[in-house]
């Protein structure tokens, strides 16, 4: 296989993986931006979305609609969690919010186990999705799932970009992320903005969950854990709380993971996650505000 084609194939893989990381990381950043809270239950919205789509599919709903259903169920769960678990402790110490989100994770995963058992379920995908495009005599392959992932991520991110730059509510969300009190003072309804942030973040996670399950072929209650950690790394790399940063971090991390496996000696491949988390530590130590975020102290 020619090196050029091999590299092209790895780029395709990296973009596809990076899209998933970006989708999840952007949700983490949206919520962190407005609430200054790391939502550890965010990964579970992937699980909820994937199981939602699985259940709809099992009930005979076509995949395309089940996917939309997964997004909606993820978004709805996020909104409910915000209302029931996070809003009552808003304004409490950071550690309270953190523990609350860990408790939510625990509850959601156990709910998943209760409903679906802890063993993996097959995630059936329709025939059209189970094929691939081949170029150069099969040396480059786009699986349909990869294409779908990249296309849907592109659409979602474009919509988000339009939302945060063109609508009052999106601008308001960025304003509230920057300075909550000043946002209050111009009359923005901050509660509403927080609900919308959770709906968007969790809807993105629901989409990522369905796509993740479609790629892996299985769903299980703990499936959100690894992507959450990876998204966390991606968000830190880009600059926690920054949407553009999460996007950049997601794609960089996806590319990095794929390239570690593809281009480093194969003995190093098992250490992929160790390398990724070392990178996290390096960023936390030397560039805690990430690539894109700049520090700005806000004084009351």
């Amino acid at each position: 296989m020619s090196p050029g084609l091999y590299i092209a194939q790895q780029i395709i893989n990296g973009v596809s993986l990076g899209s998933l990381y970006a989708l999840v990381a952007i949700g983490l950043s949206l919520v962190f931006g407005i609430l200054r809270m790391t939502n550890f239950a965010h990964g579970d919205m992937m699980m909820v979305g994937a199981f939602g789509a699985l259940t709809l599919g099992a009930a005979g709903v076509p995949f395309e609609l089940a996917l939309l259903g997964g997004i909606a169920i993820g978004a709805l769960t996020g909104v409910i969690v915000e209302r029931v678990a996070y809003r009552p402790v808003r304004g409490a110490a950071d550690v309270t919010l953190l523990l609350t989100s860990l408790a939510v994770t625990y509850i959601l995963e156990n709910l998943g186990i209760l409903l679906f058992t802890s063993s993996p379920h097959d995630f059936p995908i329709p025939e059209w999705l189970d094929s691939s495009y081949e170029f150069s005599d099969g040396q480059i392959t786009f699986t349909q799932v990869n294409v779908l992932t990249v296309v849907l991520t592109g659409i979602s991110l474009s919509l988000l970009g339009w939302f945060v730059t063109r609508t009052d509510m999106g601008l308001g969300m960025r304003a509230a992320a920057e300075d909550m009190q000043a946002a209050n003072l111009v009359g923005l309804d901050v509660n509403k903005l927080i609900v919308v942030a959770f709906a968007l973040a969790s809807g993105f996670a629901g989409l990522a969950g369905v796509l993740w399950a479609a790629q892996a072929g299985v769903v299980e209650p703990s499936m959100g854990f690894t992507p959450l950690l990876k998204a966390f790394v991606a968000a830190i790399i880009g600059g926690f709380g920054s949407i553009a940063g999460a996007l950049l971090g997601g794609y960089l991390l996806g590319a990095l993971e794929v390239f570690i496996v593809a281009f480093l000696p194969s003995e190093l491949s098992p250490y992929r996650d160790a390398i990724v988390f070392s990178l996290l530590i390096a960023f936390l130590l030397f560039r805690p505000y990430g690539l894109l975020r700049t520090t700005r102290e806000v004084k009351l």
């Binding site: 304003a175 920057e178 000043a182 003072l185 004084k299």
Partner: peptide, 10 residues
């Protein structure tokens, strides 16, 4: 408000 508090990213 005191200290201006404009939205610096906007």
């Amino acid at each position: 408000p005191e200290g201006r508090r404009v939205f610096g990213n906007l």
